[in-house]
Nucleic acid binder design. Structure first.
Lengths: 222, 222
DNA sequence: ACATGATTCAATATATCAATTGAATGATCA
DNA sequence: TGATCATTCAATTGATATATTGAATCATGT
């Protein structure tokens, strides 16, 4: 009885599908997560993602054509970035749906993550409140160049791979919060686990830098 | 220099991609938008979307396998629904990205929508405030069965196709707000345009019923 | 102007996805 | 129990997406 949808509605859905298709690939999602940290060149992204340069370039162009990322030229390299903060929201709700609904992800989370972090992670608002009271040491465990591209205001940079030899820089009695790229980035888990082994009181920030920035909370960037 | 991502991270992205792929199809997006109205059977969805029953069934199963929708049996039919309210958020941010970034969508919006509605649409909060003061008549212009599956609390049902012959039911001096399925559903545009031609003071609700419900605002449903 | 280095393009082979058809389930009602 | 109806399955065909390779651009610095 109901009629088939009219033309403009169909065109509109076709356009939404174009954007969804841009996200519908493991490697592009990974590139987007990397871009959520800040602007990056093609070769850097290729290295970080483990893809060939040509392949990375093609994925990035796909993302650009669909308006998910933008690019600008700087000297002889082309820097890509997310087109819009809404993209962070989009990725985040994608994650939530996967997390809440997909049995396979549940299994992965249970097996790989939960056992590493029995303590509850701390939320954004809670962390902000405690930082304002000076009660907490916040550690950014991402690689140094990601830190310098932008980080939570007041955080100190201790990349994961330097953590063991820089433990003495960390005040011993204060509570520590570690964060990295996002809720499924493993670096903060590793850091918390290591710090606890050494007797520190460490927790993980539930979200990562992209979510923090996207929520409008205080950052320091270039 | 940076290493290629470790295995669990890759598996996780692969799982996110599975969810994204479920959305990466024009017809599945349309089915999801229809399901955002409420539970529906396969045949109904096939009719509303203009797809064959078998094709609709396969798309729905795809969506179910990926955890985006769930199904339950009722008598001899199977009713599908969105698995989770987060799915509404996901669809909504997908829309926002498309709207803000894709040139083609801009063109469509400009050509088809803008000219139909020069007055600003009214937002959710604003509408709620005015409804509480009794200042406004809210009309649901979706088909009657969508209205009865769930609607904004206090709205009256006048399906678009009955609007012309039911004008006398509408209080003449009060401001009218019409809504339908969402920001890109055309029915509310048509209704507003028709009402204005007849001398009513009519505006469009910026969002549709799914967004209203998802925001936790008052509804009446079965 | 030319060599360099970063990025993109073009062409190919492989893999995955979508719509259609007709047959097979599985719950209901007579 | 058997007929009926809604839904799903299986197999096919045509279309689309992906990774790889090697060549082509295009701004820069000499």
């Amino acid at each position: 009885m109901a009629s088939t949808p009219d033309l403009p509605t169909r065109l509109l859905f076709a356009q939404f599908a174009v954007v969804a298709k841009a996200l519908a690939n493991e490697h592009r999602l990974m590139l987007l997560q990397l871009l959520a940290q800040g602007e990056r060149g093609v070769e850097t992204l290729a290295e970080m993602s483990g893809l060939s340069v040509a392949n990375t370039s093609q994925h990035l162009q796909h993302l650009r054509r669909t308006g998910v990322v933008t690019a600008r030229r700087q000297g002889k390299r082309i820097l890509y970035r997310l087109a819009d903060d809404v993209v962070v929201t989009l990725l985040s709700s994608l994650r939530q749906v996967a997390e809440r609904n997909v049995a396979e992800v549940q299994r992965l989370l249970d097996g790989y993550f939960r056992e590493r972090d029995s303590l509850e992670p701390i939320g954004r608002e809670e962390l902000l409140k405690r930082m304002r009271r000076g009660m907490i040491t916040v550690i950014d465990v991402r690689p140094a160049e990601e830190f310098s591209a932008g980080h939570i205001a007041g955080a100190i940079s201790i990349p994961l791979e330097q953590l063991k030899r820089r433990l003495r820089e960390i005040p011993p009695r204060r509570e520590i919060v570690a964060y990295c790229r996002g809720p499924y980035c493993l670096m903060a888990y590793e850091a918390v686990s290591e710090l606890r082994r050494r007797g520190f009181r460490a927790r993980r920030l539930k979200e990562g830098y992209p979510e923090w920035k996207s929520a409008g909370l205080p950052v320091e960037d270039k």
